[in-house]
Design a binder for these strands. Structure first.
Lengths: 114, 114
DNA sequence: AAAAGTAGTTACATAAAAGTTACCATTGAA
DNA sequence: TTCAATGGTAACTTTTATGTAACTACTTTT
């Protein structure tokens, strides 16, 4: 569906008896850390420690839990290399990459109104 | 800034020492109810009771608190009429309306991947 | 006289998300 | 032999968000 088309439509129009598609998106993007982790991954491949450093204030526990959720939802791909000490890389999957318009729109809004 | 331009840029690029603009957006859009309330208001003017009905599961307390936050942030306009019983209408301000691209992007993503 | 209707508020309880601190395994380097 | 480095985990506490149930004010309708 073209975005121009959607812009003309009723934003609330949802298939009868079905969950609204915004709510489905919110199941993945639930909470600020999800947005920020994904934003960081648009920068390219990242390791656990890199994410932890750039996401100021996140605890290792929260980062670990959130990354697992994103992996389980097919948004993030985790690749572990058997080095010592261990090397683990996180990247966005195709599904994760397709979140870009949302992140871009939020970035633009924040720049203008935030 | 044109969206095509932004799409080419590094999504993480933030002014040095300054808060990232996505984080500023997240100060307004914090939590699922914010997204859903705003989505409903794109449908047009709404009264408290209407919002409460369409936002399935929201408690009057949460709706009240969230609407006040949105009003304080300049996203929502509250208009009370001195009728009996009272009539109160909620609408999006210009700032609130400008959130549309975010909501649209989320709706499209949810429809495709959710 | 009591009920209905709107837009909430209040006090209390619960659940979910997040933070804190300490800790583990492995192995090459100092 | 002890330290550093990576990518976490475990137990516990705190914070934040949300829900529940009852209640308010005011006036018209039954």
């Amino acid at each position: 569906m073209k975005i121009e088309r959607v812009l003309e439509e009723n934003i609330c129009e949802c298939p009868a008896g079905l969950e609204c598609s915004i709510e489905k998106t919110l199941e993945v993007l639930d909470g600020k850390w999800m947005f920020l982790i994904i934003r960081d991954l648009f920068d390219g491949v990242k390791r656990f420690g890199e994410l932890k450093k750039s996401l100021e204030g996140i605890s290792p526990k929260t980062l670990s839990v959130r990354l697992k959720e994103l992996e389980a939802k097919g948004v993030v791909l985790r690749t572990a290399y058997p080095t010592v000490p261990p090397t683990v890389e996180y990247t966005l999957t195709e599904k994760g990459n397709s979140l870009k318009p949302i992140i871009i729109a939020m970035k633009l809004w924040g720049a203008k109104w935030g």
